[in-house]
Amino acid sequence: MAAILYAADPPEARRRVSLDALDAIHHRPSGQTHLVCEPIPQILEALAAGPADAAGIVARLAIAHEFDPADAATIIAARLAELEAIGLLWRV
């Protein structure tokens, strides 16, 4: 199966306020508010460099963050599908 490539709006399309363990994100194109935890803000930031699939995002995240890459791709892929459903990401 070919990997799904995702794209996101540029960072300036979102206003992010860190509340505690959760961040509030105001998504300007939709006017919707999302409460999110890690690694959602990091995924969105990683996509600022252009569209990527789950493996590509894991590679980008690995540069700045420490995590176990073994099952990271599965976790990231699940988050990507959720973000697509709420319109923060789309397939290209």
Binding site: R28, P29, S30, G31, G87, W90
Partner: peptide
């Protein structure tokens, strides 16, 4: 301005 934003977003969602 908010009506406009919401309307364009719905159009974008239908488009996707």
């Amino acid at each position: 301005a908010e009506w406009r934003r919401t309307a364009l977003w719905e159009a974008e969602m239908a488009h996707r």
